[in-house]
């Protein structure tokens, strides 16, 4: 537990002590060569696990639960779902 829990189940962001990364069976792996930064994956990721910047999108593996929606939505085939070792 990284932060003390408040008395109600509402937590200030980004100090969320509850992560979903451990649920993952498949990990999204990005090919930055193919990616054109359209941000569809960022829009569709139900966990807010796709992080965006000026240069690239990045997966926050603490929260990515491996659903594969981003890979499905990517028009550039830039995301591969690779089984966790």
């Amino acid at each position: 537990m990284t932060v003390a829990l408040p008395s109600a189940p509402h937590l200030p962001n980004p100090n969320r002590p509850i992560t979903t990364g451990s649920w993952r069976t498949f990990r999204p792996v990005l090919d930055h060569e193919k990616c054109n930064l359209c941000l569809l994956c960022w829009v569709y990721c139900a966990d807010g696990a796709m992080k965006r910047s000026e240069e690239a999108v990045m997966v926050d593996l603490e929260f990515c639960k491996g659903c594969g929606i981003c890979a499905k939505e990517c028009h550039k085939d830039a995301i591969d779902m690779v089984e966790e070792g």
Binding site: M1, L5, S7, A8, P9, H10, L11, P12, N13, R16, P17, I18
Partner: peptide, 21 residues
Amino acid sequence: TNPTTFCFGATPEVFAEYKYH
């Protein structure tokens, strides 16, 4: 200005504490 996650999904590690509160 102070984003909050409301009523998040709780895991077994924290659920009981909220019920205690």
